[in-house]
Design a protein around this nucleic acid. Sequence first.
DNA 1: CCGCATCCGTTTCGATACTG
DNA 2: CAGTATCGAAACGGATGCGG
Lengths: 211, 211
Amino acid sequence: MPTSRSYGDACPIARALDAIGERWALLVVRELLLGPQRFSDLRRALPGASSNMLTDRLRELEGRGLVRRRRLPPPAASSVYELTERGRELEPILDSLGAWGGAEPRPANGSLTATSVLLFLRGSARAHPDPPTDTYRVQLDDRVWTVSNPRGQLEIEPHDTAAPEASIRTDPGTLNALLLDPAGLDGAIAAGSVQAEGNLAALRRLVEVAA
Amino acid sequence: MPTSRSYGDACPIARALDAIGERWALLVVRELLLGPQRFSDLRRALPGASSNMLTDRLRELEGRGLVRRRRLPPPAASSVYELTERGRELEPILDSLGAWGGAEPRPANGSLTATSVLLFLRGSARAHPDPPTDTYRVQLDDRVWTVSNPRGQLEIEPHDTAAPEASIRTDPGTLNALLLDPAGLDGAIAAGSVQAEGNLAALRRLVEVAA
DNA sequence: CCGCATCCGTTTCGATACTG
DNA sequence: CAGTATCGAAACGGATGCGG
């Protein structure tokens, strides 16, 4: 049974670390921030985590009420993991970690993960005075997200969409570079590192939100 | 050699966790937030951490530039550990962890640590429109701090002080209870769980900052 | 293929003992 | 006081297997 060690300290910081301080726990939460994911989605998103590690973390997060496992309706014989309301409250912790960690050195051979870049995109759009309102299909490597703006605030969800205003297909590193330098979009398309379809003007507005 | 495992992920969240995600690392940082501490101070503050664990963490935090080891001038043959500027930037992370962790269940047999209560006191005072301006001597169990207000902002430092306006001696749990219920001060003094000296009106202002 | 469970080598942790 | 040395226990990481 994956009972985690406790610091035995009633300090709220130590209590938080008791709950989410183990290896991989917060990265699992990071992945779930953009919406429910199946076990195999999480495995692809966190290739460094072994399957039993993922099982242990999900069980423990579930036991602590931060993650909920939901069986999908009959057609799909699968289930998804999603954050509970309490789990979503971890977002400020991830925000502060991300703000601090950006100044730490990048690990050797470390590539950006899709979720990380999308969280950056979402955060930038939410800080933008005039965020994009169109619906986009974003494919990074072999995973697909829908970027939309249903309530005046950018949402990114882990599923495909029909009839987006524009679509983009690339890899996380290239998208991250584009967000930092939106002027590179045409060049990246020409070079083939980005495939774009649909309304390119709308797509341009999307990749400019962080600038 | 305590080379920590890396997530191999260039995401800023993962990079932060590479640096301060191991067991005990953030609790060491928490202890140093109130000022430089000697090895033995840290051992007393973190009784659950073994000595070699503490050594490993301090070495690693030092190697990452978050903690600095400083030899004390000749009279004392000792040295202290203190946060670097970069290490102090971890404070928002600890704040968000503390804010979230307060709603987590307290571990069985877990008592509050002195630093945790003092951080709560300091945070409350800094959010207070009219914080105390006197200098206090606060003793919790066998450690002593100076609470002062040199620049319009409450400071808590891990050393003794001469001629404080008021002094209080108790344990972390009792002080925490007092901060949540300042009206209990007189009763606690009468019951002997708190020893107070000096200007009691000033002391009352101090324990009322969180109310 | 999905969602694990089991096995096993390696790393890290934790407790105690010991040294300059 | 400020750490090292040692050693068993626990956690991690990778591989494989197995029932849907």
